[in-house]
Design a protein around this nucleic acid. Structure first.
Lengths: 229, 229
DNA sequence: CGGTTAATTGATGTGGGTCAAAAGCAGTGG
DNA sequence: CCACTGCTTTTGACCCACATCAATTAACCG
């Protein structure tokens, strides 16, 4: 049961060897699947494993006491649930499946051992921690300071870059499994308002989002709205 | 020129030995001061040093192209500017002095070497990376999902916990060098609205913020407003 | 063909922004 | 000792982006 994603960096590099080693079934490593919508890990729950998403989409989030949910990051195949979780015993976030997914778990102790022993693994993890922190920080700034339109544009740009990094895109059409509810939870808006904003972007001929595919008709315009530069 | 803060964990532990070693003046390590309001490091600028705040307050922030500024974290004596910066060549944030400050810089290569060689140093850095990520994540969720009052209460609670961790507090009066502008930039509001909200909290007998000291009159009430639990 | 979930659209409400004026309060310098 | 300047906070009047509530349509599915 090997992961079927293209190698896109850090995680694939580190974990492929373990995953393909003849250890399946041992306590070192295991695989699992989950249906769309299911929660996979719960905030605060201790775990001895570090997880990698092998197929499908998922997302990290935090459930607030007032009932709202903040999506922190959308996970694509090859992503660690969080690079940080290599260093902490309990998750500080929850993860749920966006599509149906396949995941692999690795004993944290083992990952840590490798990370300490092997300079290459260490720097790979470090790199992915850095990228993750950058993304979070940037998102924080955008959510706190930008308009609804800018936030949504930012999210779309961020996601298409990551999608394009792992599959060939034709005619600017991106596979895009998010519901408007997910976009809303990611950028701190209501689904109703997300619908309105996407409607405007569609009317202006910038992006069209229907039925699981996101089509970018005017990338420069989108970047003018949602880029930080 | 030793740092004069109380040891409050990670950073002090790791860096004190280097700082007090007879290396002063070498390219290993250096000290500097800055006046209140001055920018200390600029986003995107490469640097071979990792910085620790030794005295005073500072803050990490990102300047957005639209002119607004998002404060990411307030730094207190003993804090690394960012634990992440141990692993990246260029800052992904800016830092400015809030009060006048004293900082120390350590050659990143050296810190990294220690971090790779020494399990204790490694786990200390890891711990501080984890804490930093948790804070950022939580702040992100609060900013995206909570009301003005909640955001401000959250920030105050977060700060007083950290202040109390490094100095004795009498009668719930905390040294508090932030201007309302800083609060505004940290929680994504305008200074005008921050003033209104603080006014309300004052009228309700919950907190009083004047002239560099924050007095908490009704901690349970503040927690009811600004706690995530 | 009913039943459920997602997206759209309209009407209306409100939290927080914007603009502007005033007031408090250091410093600074004559 | 007082006027002058600059900075921060406060307060008021008004406005708008986004939320809320509610109804309609569209798509899917057993």
């Amino acid at each position: 049961m090997t992961c079927t994603y293209r190698e896109t960096g850090v995680c694939a590099e580190i974990f492929e060897p373990i995953a393909s080693a003849p250890q399946a079934g041992s306590s070192f490593q295991y695989s699992a699947v989950a249906k769309a919508g299911k929660q996979i890990v719960a905030r605060g729950k201790p775990s001895d494993y570090v997880f990698v998403l092998c197929a499908g989409w998922a997302f990290r989030y935090i459930q607030l006491p007032n009932g709202s949910r903040q999506i922190l990051k959308f996970l694509q195949p090859g992503d660690l649930f969080s690079p940080i979780s290599v260093f902490e015993e309990a998750f500080h976030f929850s993860v749920a499946a966006l599509t149906s997914v396949q995941i692999s778990g690795f004993a944290r102790s083992e990952v840590r051992r490798r990370c300490f022993a092997d300079a290459e693994a260490q720097s790979a993890i470090a790199k992915s921690v850095v990228l993750d922190a950058r993304d979070t920080t940037e998102l924080l700034a955008v959510l706190a300071q930008c308009s609804a339109e800018q936030r949504i544009a930012y999210l779309l740009l961020h996601l298409i870059r990551r999608i394009a990094a792992r599959q060939v895109i034709r005619e600017q059409r991106y596979p895009f499994p998010l519901r408007q509810q997910h976009i809303a939870d990611a950028v701190g808006l209501t689904p109703v308002h997300v619908s309105r904003v996407l409607g405007l972007l569609r009317d202006r001929g910038i992006v069209v989002l229907t039925d699981g595919v996101l089509e970018i008709l005017d990338l420069p315009a989108l970047e003018r709205i949602g880029s930080l530069e």
